[in-house]
């Protein structure tokens, strides 16, 4: 199975809610589990790309760590049930509050899976173009992560893919590419972005 979304949450209403939001994403299989002990590890290991949606709660840190070290390419979405909940921000690629707009959650999932589709064509994905636009505008990895609701780790991984696809490594080079391709306008760029 190529693409999978696995939702692990004790609350059935949350599992079913997220599942129904994401069910329209094409060729992705969604499975839901109330806790970590019920997971089918064989199935998880077989997935090429895995989006894990779990409670953003320190209580599960150990289980998560074990799980993450035994599966392939994946991103981790932490769901915050309330503001006071304790969690480690850095552990997650995305951290979303329980009242997150549905659109944003769908964007996260689509962004993760779509990067796979055009890998060999050398064309940038929509998400990569967005990251490139923000690089060209002079943003740091941290700002890009905050703007796109993704982790800096994911930003770095996008940057790596962009560089590999375009054959352009430097920030000035990427900026010029973004202008040539009309991803940004020449007037949007500050003069020192090339130096």
């Amino acid at each position: 199975m190529a693409k999978s979304i696995v939702i692990i949450h004790p609350a059935e209403i949350i599992r079913k809610g997220i599942s129904s939001l994401l069910e329209d994403i094409q060729s992705v299989r969604i499975s839901c589990f109330p806790d970590f002990s019920k997971l089918n590890m064989q199935e998880l290991k077989a997935a090429q790309k895995l989006l894990l949606i779990v409670p953003a709660n320190c209580r599960y840190a150990q289980e998560l760590l074990e799980l993450r070290t035994s599966i392939g390419e994946h991103e981790l979405v932490g769901v915050l049930t309330n503001d006071k909940e304790k969690c480690e921000d850095n552990a997650f690629d995305h951290l979303i509050p329980i009242d997150v707009p549905a659109k944003q959650l769908i964007q996260i999932a689509e962004g993760f899976f779509e990067s796979d589709d055009t890998d060999n064509s050398g064309e940038l994905t929509i998400r990569e173009k967005e990251v490139l636009r923000l690089i060209a505008l002079g943003n740091t990895n941290k700002t890009i992560a905050d703007t796109l609701f993704i982790s800096t780790h994911t930003v770095i991984s996008h940057r790596k893919n962009i560089t590999e696809k375009l054959g352009i490594k430097s920030i000035p080079g990427l900026t010029v590419y973004a202008i040539i391709q009309k991803i940004v306008g020449p007037s949007d760029i500050s003069p020192d972005q090339l130096s």
Partner: peptide, 17 residues
């Protein structure tokens, strides 16, 4: 290394785009 990268980028920008 940076000098190398940017020269490489210059080549690629011209050759590819």
């Amino acid at each position: 290394e940076h000098v190398d990268f940017e020269l490489d980028d210059l080549k690629n920008l011209i050759l590819k785009y």
